[in-house]
Design a binder for these strands. Structure first.
Length: 358
DNA sequence: TAGGCCATCTGGTCCT
DNA sequence: AGGACCAGATGGCCTA
């Protein structure tokens, strides 16, 4: 048995980790659900009927695999000892043990795959929420919280239809996040968390912040600019011309000064679109040297009024590359893409578009 | 070292 | 019957 399991490389780590598993399973494998279920059904029905047949009689009706453990038969003959209730263990024949292990092994593999899929979906989510960092990954729970906050923040921007206040924006993003994540978000925005933490912790839970923040004093900076491709003055870079380096667009829009604080060594590589509230959503991708990937990750709402972000021939709210998602995992792209298509003609987008052209 | 986070195993439940 | 989903348990790794 173990020989068989060890021969499977994909199972090796688990087998090594749970070296005592085989023995345990042999002893307790009879608790496996479907094996017990049959016996449970038998016993439940007989007990409800007040069936006085002995367990050996039950066992005698079953096939070879349904034999009941001998130890369970002693209940009637051991004087005052209460009769054992509940499902009876079936004798674990070698064939049954083997089937149980195979079934469990397959279930474990499926579960691993399922969790890996879930994790990769979470990874994709990390790339589209604020403060994506390869070196400092958000935990799962923080990723979900931040994603929720981000959706809320964007909804508020759409609802208000006016220029978002950065402090409120960051506070909304950080609501309910841990201190380290809050610091991370603030760091991504080059904003000292002390500037808003006290307001964020206001117990009334309503809107935080006093709106005193000025984009001029704290120029919004997309941490993506830490990428050498996005350094100030690198407007010639194709990513910039296609609207990837959207912090500059934001600066232009909101009067950011484009200070030299662009360098943010702690966040390597391009960061996530949320920092780019000008609407340029460009999925972060690692090692995507291929042009196909560059095209594929370029779903953006291009606001042509933004200097340096106007893609050639683009028009308002046109989704990049005709919404192509080539080279992208369909897992996340589809809903993302569909969402954009779904809203493509929505009035709110016209409104937002007009807003960004003011 | 405690606590947080994570991967994995496991058994139960529900659904097809 | 088998797969998907879920939650609990467990142990490893990392960091303050």
């Amino acid at each position: 048995m173990l020989t068989r399991l060890f021969s499977d490389p994909s199972l090796l780590p688990d087998v090594q980790k749970y070296s005592g598993w085989a023995e345990d399973s042999d002893d307790e494998g009879s608790h496996v659900k479907d094996d017990d279920q049959d016996t449970q059904d038998d016993m439940d029905s007989s007990e409800l009927r007040g069936d006085s047949r002995t367990q050996s009689e039950h066992a005698g009706e079953d096939d070879e695999d349904d034999e009941v453990e001998d130890e369970d038969d002693g209940g009637d003959t051991e004087g005052d000892r209460p009769k054992k209730r509940g499902p009876k263990k079936r004798k674990m024949t070698p064939a049954r043990i083997e089937r149980t292990k195979v079934r469990r092994t397959k279930a474990n593999a499926r579960e691993r795959t399922r969790m890996h899929d879930l994790n990769s979906a979470l990874d994709n989510l990390r790339k589209v929420v604020p403060c994506y960092s390869k070196t400092q990954k958000l935990s799962k729970i923080e990723t979900l919280r931040l994603a929720k906050n981000y959706i809320w923040a964007l909804s508020e921007i759409l609802r208000a239809g006016k220029r978002p206040d950065l402090v409120n924006y960051v506070q909304t993003l950080c609501k309910g996040l841990s201190q380290p994540t809050t610091n991370l978000v603030a760091g991504c925005l080059q904003l000292n968390s002390r500037n808003f933490l006290t307001e964020q912790q206001c117990p009334d839970g309503s809107r935080y912040g006093n709106g005193s923040f000025s984009m001029h004093s704290y120029p919004y900076q997309c941490a993506r600019l830490s990428s050498p491709h996005c350094q100030p003055g690198s407007n010639s870079h194709p990513l910039r011309t296609q609207g990837y380096c959207s912090a500059t667009a934001y600066d232009s829009l909101y009067g950011g000064s484009g200070s030299p604080e662009y360098n943010s060594p702690e966040y390597e590589g391009p960061l996530s679109p949320p920092l780019c509230i000008n609407g340029n959503f460009s999925l972060k991708h690692q090692g995507s040297a291929s042009p196909e990937n560059e095209k594929g990750y370029h779903y953006s709402m291009h606001y042509s009024g933004l200097p340096g972000s106007r893609p050639t021939g683009s028009h308002n709210l046109v989704f990049g590359s005709s919404g192509t998602r080539s080279g992208i995992h369909s897992e996340n792209v589809l809903p993302y893409h569909d969402m954009h298509l779904h809203h493509e003609r929505a009035p709110v987008y016209d409104e937002l578009n007009a807003f960004f052209h003011n």
